[in-house]
Design a protein around this nucleic acid. Structure first.
Lengths: 152, 152
DNA sequence: CTGACTGCAAAATCTTTGCAAAGAC
DNA sequence: GTCTTTGCAAAGATTTTGCAGTCAG
């Protein structure tokens, strides 16, 4: 995993290249995502940051703006949930895909070499310049299957 | 491809099973999706239906409600576009995945046996009961790549 | 007839934008 | 100092809901 100091330097250089500024808000949002595994909605992120930094009072608009910036910079990635918005996660880790539970909303990550290779081959066949790919396996996770059985 | 009369019967039996009613609006929406290949937002669907049936005046709420019903019935499927909502397509055709162009928003469909098989294996490994899966390859389609080169 | 369905408009979500004040460089 | 960023609140965009009248069975 990338070191935090390296990450910050990387972020600062992206910031500088684009004539932007390195602000406390941007740093705190990045830091949170770096330090917390998982997938967060902007609203959740807002809540967590308010808990950790009660004095900062980071506006929701800033969260949105920063997430967009971080995503464009390739530092975070997002996964969308139909109408219910997006969840963001720190993106500078090994590429992976997701198992999404429709019962509890839980997300499990996995990585599979076979699928990765095949995706590139498919894109090539269509002369499609792949910049990203998303794979979600949707269903019911082991825990929720058990809970269901116990209820019956 | 499923025959239209068979499709309607199928829909009617789902309707009946659930104590619902078979209405003109529901039929017209289903008919449109059956007859038109492609992926439509609720808003687009609304516009198209208004063009074809200027006298019907189907409300946008009905479109949403019907699409939800059709999706729950397994007759249509949806693909979500981050913040920008969902697109729906007729779903009773061979399963396939999508290539989505970030430039023009165009969608190309493909089907790959290797990927299908591997997805099931992965779900099994996690004791995950897969009900669906989504795969999107995101990038720039052949046409948009060409247009870009021409502009330069 | 009865209960489901519809269109309308209002409400609810989620996200973006305009602006004056504050902050980074 | 200059130009970007921020928080706030208002505006937008998309989707859902409440309701009275309408329609299917």
């Amino acid at each position: 995993m990338i070191d935090y100091s390296v990450l910050i330097e990387k972020f600062k250089s992206i910031i500088k290249e684009n004539g932007l500024k390195f602000t406390k808000q941007r740093e705190l949002i990045l830091k949170f995502l770096y330090e917390h595994e998982g997938h967060f909605t902007p609203e959740e992120l807002n809540g967590e940051l308010r808990k950790i930094y009660p004095d900062e009072n980071i506006g929701i608009a800033t969260i949105y703006r920063t997430l967009t910036l971080l995503e464009e910079s390739g530092i975070v990635t997002s996964i969308s949930f139909g109408t219910q918005g997006k969840k963001y996660e720190f993106g500078l880790k090994k590429h992976h895909d997701h198992l999404v539970c429709i019962q509890c909303g839980g997300i499990t990550e996995f990585y599979d070499e076979t699928i990765e290779k095949r995706q590139q081959e498919i894109a090539d066949n269509f002369n499609f310049q792949m910049t990203d790919h998303i794979m979600k396996i949707i269903g019911i996770c082991e825990t929720c299957q058990k809970n269901k059985r116990e209820k019956v």
